[in-house]
Computed example of a mutant assay.
Amino acid sequence: MSLIYALRDRYPHLGFDDRPLVASCDDGWLGIMHAFLHDADKAMVPGGTFTLQQVREKMGGLQMHYEIADIAPAARRAIDDAHRQASARSFHVCEICGRRGRLNNFSGLWKVVCTEHADGKLGKGVPFVGPFDVQDSYSPEADPFVAARPTAAEFDAAPIIDGWLVEEQGECGSRPWLYGWFFGKPDIGDGEHGHTSPIVQMDDMVPPRWVRTDNWLYRLGIHYLPAEREIRYWAQKLRRRPLAYGEPPGGSNGIEAMLIFLRSTGRLKSMKIDRMEQAYREEEQDQEISRGG
Rank of each mutant, 00 (worst) to 15 (best):
Arg56Glu: 15
Ala69Tyr: 08
Lys124Trp: 01
Leu37Tyr: 11
Ala118Asp: 03
Asn104Ala: 05
Ser90Val: 11
Ile96Gly: 00
Ala88Cys: 12
Ala23Cys: 12
Ile32Cys: 13
Leu14Thr: 10
Leu30Cys: 02
Cys114His: 04
Trp110Ala: 14
His38Pro: 03
Cys94Val: 02
Asp27Gly: 14
Phe106Pro: 00
Gly123Glu: 09
Met44Cys: 06
Ile71Gly: 02
Glu67His: 14
Leu37Asp: 07
Lys58Gly: 15
Pro12His: 08
Leu109Gly: 06
Ala75Cys: 08
Phe106Thr: 00
Tyr5Ser: 13
Asp41Asn: 13
Gln53Trp: 01
Asp70Ala: 08
Leu109His: 14
Ile71Glu: 00
Ala72Ser: 04
Asp26Lys: 13
Pro12Phe: 14
Ser90Lys: 11
Leu3Pro: 05
Ala82Ile: 10
Ser90Ala: 00
Ile96Asp: 04
Phe106Met: 13
Val113Asp: 00
Met33Ile: 13
Met33Lys: 00
Arg77Ile: 06
Val112Glu: 09
Arg8Ala: 08
Cys25Ala: 09
His13Ile: 11
Pro73Glu: 04
Ser87Trp: 14
Ile32Trp: 03
Lys111Gln: 12
Arg77Pro: 00
Glu116Lys: 08
His34Tyr: 14
Gln54Asp: 05
His34Val: 15
Gly48Pro: 09
Tyr11Leu: 13
Gly48Met: 04
Val112Thr: 12
Asp9Lys: 14
Gly15Gln: 10
Ser90Asn: 02
Met44Thr: 00
His38Glu: 07
Asp17Ala: 10
Ala82Ser: 06
Ala74Trp: 01
Gly101Tyr: 09
Gly31Asn: 03
Ala35Cys: 12
Leu52Ile: 02
Gln63Asp: 14
Ala82Gly: 01
Gln85Ser: 12
Pro20Glu: 08
His83Asp: 13
Leu62Trp: 12
Lys58Trp: 14
Ala118Gln: 07
Leu37Ile: 04
Arg89Asn: 14
Ala6Thr: 09
Asp80Cys: 08
Gly108Trp: 15
Asp70Lys: 09
Met33Arg: 10
His34Asn: 07
Gly60Ile: 05
Ser24His: 09
Pro20Phe: 10
Arg19Trp: 06
Ile68Met: 11
Ala40Gln: 01
His92Ala: 05
Leu103Ala: 04
Glu57Lys: 02
Asp18Ser: 15
Trp110Tyr: 08
Arg84Gln: 15
Arg8Lys: 15
Cys114Met: 03
Arg76Ser: 11
Ala88Leu: 09
Met33Pro: 07
Asn104Pro: 02
Asp81Pro: 13
Arg99Thr: 10
Phe36His: 08
Lys42Ile: 10
Met64Thr: 05
Leu103Phe: 07
Gln63Ser: 13
Asp80Phe: 12
Gly123Asn: 06
Val112Met: 06
Arg89Ala: 02
Thr115Gln: 07
Arg77Phe: 14
Arg56Ala: 10
His38Gly: 13
Gln53Leu: 01
His92Asn: 04
Arg102Ala: 15
Leu62His: 03
Gln63Thr: 05
Leu109Arg: 15
Tyr11Arg: 13
Tyr66Thr: 08
Ala43Pro: 00
Asp81Arg: 10
Trp29Ile: 02
Arg76Asn: 01
Gly28Ser: 07
Ile4Asn: 13
Tyr66Glu: 06
Gly15Thr: 08
Pro46Asp: 06
Gly108Pro: 06
Val55Ala: 07
Pro46Lys: 12
Ala78Gln: 06
Phe106Glu: 02
Ile32Val: 13
Tyr66Ser: 09
Leu21Ser: 12
Gln85Gly: 11
